[in-house]
Amino acid sequence: MDVKDSNGNILKDGDSVVLIKDLKVRGSSATLKRGTVVKNIRLTDDETEIEGKVDRTMMVLRTEFLKKS
């Protein structure tokens, strides 16, 4: 299974990605800002989602809003 970012680059475990859009966090009033770097990502069973730590919180992010850094 190939996991690709918004530009079509293949992502692997341990890569760093950058958010390309401001994202609201469900269940919280927080917003993740464009340009935020997510380091050391982990791939999930779904090719459209990855896991990564943002501000010491593990979050699931959609790959359509990420680009490889």
Rank of each mutant, 00 (worst) to 15 (best):
G27P: 00
L66W: 03
T36I: 07
T63K: 09
R62Q: 15
V54R: 13
N9F: 03
D45W: 01
V18A: 03
L23N: 04
D13C: 09
V60G: 05
K68Y: 07
L66Q: 06
A30N: 15
K53L: 08
L23K: 15
V37Y: 11
K12I: 01
G8N: 07
S28Y: 06
K67R: 15
D55P: 00
R26G: 12
G52C: 12
T31A: 11
D46Y: 07
D46R: 07
D13N: 10
T57F: 10
K24S: 11
N9Y: 08
R42K: 10
L61T: 01
V3D: 10
M58Q: 15
N40W: 04
K67C: 08
L11Y: 05
N40H: 10
E51Q: 04
F65R: 03
M1P: 10
K39H: 09
V18D: 07
I10Q: 12
M59S: 00
D5E: 00
V25D: 05
S16E: 13
G14A: 10
R34C: 12
M1A: 14
N40P: 06
K53A: 00
V17N: 13
L61F: 11
R26M: 07
V3Q: 11
V3P: 06
V60Y: 14
G27H: 10
D15F: 10
V25G: 04
I50E: 05
S69W: 05
E49S: 08
L11M: 09
K21V: 03
S29V: 10
S69V: 15
I10V: 06
L61M: 06
S28H: 04
E47G: 02
G27A: 08
R34E: 14
I20P: 00
L23M: 03
D22C: 14
E64A: 15
T31W: 07
S29W: 14
S28M: 01
K53R: 14
K24E: 13
S28Q: 02
N40I: 01
K21Q: 14
T31Q: 09
S69D: 12
K68T: 02
E64Y: 09
S16Y: 02
K68M: 04
K39T: 05
M1I: 09
K68D: 01
T31D: 00
I20T: 09
